[in-house]
């Protein structure tokens, strides 16, 4: 057992046989590791892979009653309908714009926030802030939309009431197309930046404190410490999250967009998710819904694989 970890010696047999044998040896060596992975792998097989047959209904006119085997195959018909839809470009533009604004402004927010919190010395204060700022995460979008309407409404909204109190003109926050995307991003930051700090704070707490001591010895300023110690210390987690986020570029959070969007801002608020809700889900058209979903997934996969490759080129571990 103790010796197994040592390198396995190649023998004199022909190469392919050697490789086989070497692999078997490695697998045997790591048998406990594989055993450890078994429950998890079994979970993914059972609950994630077995239902995957559901994806093929994207190529059918699926009727649950006759089942997947007896439903008609229609090839790429649903995809053709989706791509030839005259609004496809607008849907794509809106989806990408909202996604990238989130990536640009919402994604870094919890990182910055957790670094700031890490610098707070007063333990009680720190814990208090932590608990408070993660509260909005627990509010559903319905409630948040409700609060937003109270704050931003035109006739009685708090902000507009204050504006008119000072004799300024009211701003149509909720019906203005140009303010819609920034509003979504701000809402996201407000709702989930605090919650996002949980994972980064955990990562920061794993950083070896001697590194900070060493940096101080070298006379590094606070900002330099953050740059050279904290950030690299959590870089791994940031990278994993970022790559996974890229897989979601086609998902923009249906509930939020659906609740905040209105006919007044439809030209910027109609995204793939709202489109498929309208044309697939509401109608009980499972196959059309599935085909749009599949399209989104494939784009996500390409994004993730691309990002992963890029990360590797820069010498990072990446996802896999």
């Amino acid at each position: 057992m103790k010796k197994v970890l040592a390198a396995v010696n190649p023998g004199n047999e022909n190469p392919s046989q050697t490789r086989m044998r070497r692999r078997m040896k490695i697998i045997f060596r790591d048998r406990y590791l594989y055993l450890l992975a078994l429950p998890g792998l079994f979970f993914f097989l059972l609950f994630k892979y077995i239902p995957m047959w559901g994806l093929v209904i994207a190529f059918q006119n699926y009727s649950p009653y006759v089942g997947i085997l007896n439903s008609d195959w229609v090839g790429l018909e649903h995809f053709a309908r989706f791509f030839s839809n005259s609004d496809f470009y607008i849907l794509l533009r809106n989806t990408l714009a909202i996604s990238f604004m989130n990536l640009l402004f919402f994604f870094p927010a919890p990182i910055i926030l957790s670094i700031m919190m890490n610098e707070v010395r007063q333990v009680v204060l720190k814990r208090l802030i932590q608990t408070v700022i993660y509260f909005p995460h627990f509010l559903s979008w319905v409630i948040i939309a409700g609060i937003s309407f109270i704050m931003l409404g035109q006739s009685e909204g708090v902000i507009n009431s204050i504006l008119s109190l000072f004799g300024m003109e009211k701003i149509p926050f909720l019906t203005s197309s140009s303010l819609f995307w920034p509003m979504l991003t701000l809402q996201n930051i407000w709702k989930d930046a605090g919650w996002g700090t949980v994972i980064f704070l955990a990562a920061i707490s794993g950083i070896d404190p001697t590194l900070y001591e060493a940096a101080k010895m070298d006379g590094a300023s606070k900002l330099k410490q953050i740059w050279h110690v904290t950030l690299p210390g959590i870089g791994n987690v940031i990278l994993v999250l970022l790559i996974l986020k890229l897989g979601d570029v086609m998902d923009v959070g249906f509930e939020q967009v659906f609740l905040m969007g209105s006919a007044a801002v439809s030209n910027v608020a109609d995204v793939f998710d709202t489109y498929v809700y309208r044309n697939g889900v509401l109608n009980g058209e499972f196959s059309y819904t599935a085909s749009v979903g599949l399209f989104k997934s494939i784009v996500g996969l390409i994004m993730v694989m691309g990002a992963n490759k890029l990360a590797k080129m820069f010498g990072q571990d990446g996802l896999y």
């Binding site: 309407f149 006739s155 019906t175 209105s262 006919a263 007044a264």
Partner: peptide
Amino acid sequence: IHADFATLKNTQ
């Protein structure tokens, strides 16, 4: 007409 009709929910 109520200024916010475009964004009001039925309950509001």
